[in-house]
Simulated scan of single mutants.
Amino acid sequence: MRERFWEHYPLEELTAEEWEALCDGCGQCCLLKFQDEESGELAVLNLACELLDVHSCRCSDYAHRLERVPECTRLTPERVEEFRWLPHSCAYRRVAEGRKLARWHPLLSGDPERVHRKGVSVRSFAVTSRGVPEEQYEDHIIAVIPID
């Protein structure tokens, strides 16, 4: 990877390896979300995709996630701005907005566990959606985000 690539290149010019390295491992993009058709608001649940390992905050089958979970969020350099719900801490969002990476980011700190110690990841509160009936999803809403 190129040295401090996130500071020198736009997202569209990153290699696949650099793009993947930019992920901070928070797991927030893997939380289930539902958009209210009338208000446009996005409800975020503490339920994680069935493939998310809620301890590591990494996908347990990343290579095949799109086949196994068709509604999986496919974040690409071209689509980052579509996902306005990405947390302000998200490295993809930060770089797209011209901001610096957070000091705890693994590319700066060298410590992939720091995102968890800082409380940025879903490790401390997410549970897998596996086995939770859809009629109980409303009980798992942790945030409502207005979407313009």
Rank of each mutant, 00 (worst) to 15 (best):
F83L: 15
T128W: 00
F34C: 13
R68W: 06
T73N: 02
V54R: 08
L14S: 06
V115D: 06
H105C: 12
L14H: 13
E18V: 06
V132L: 10
P133L: 09
R94Y: 01
E20N: 13
R103E: 15
A16F: 09
E38D: 14
A43M: 14
R94N: 02
V132I: 15
Q136V: 13
G119K: 09
H88Q: 07
E97D: 12
E67N: 05
I145V: 14
V120A: 11
T15H: 00
E3L: 15
L108T: 01
V95T: 11
E82I: 07
F83E: 14
G25P: 06
G25R: 03
C57Y: 02
L52Y: 13
R99S: 01
E38C: 08
P70Y: 06
D53S: 12
A91P: 01
K100E: 15
K118D: 15
C29R: 05
A48R: 01
T76K: 12
R123N: 00
R74H: 15
E135C: 03
D36R: 09
E7Y: 11
G27H: 02
D111Y: 07
Q28R: 14
A21L: 12
D148A: 15
R130K: 07
P70C: 06
C30K: 04
L31A: 03
V127L: 14
Y9G: 02
E134M: 05
L51T: 09
L31H: 01
Y62F: 12
M1F: 02
D139A: 15
H8G: 15
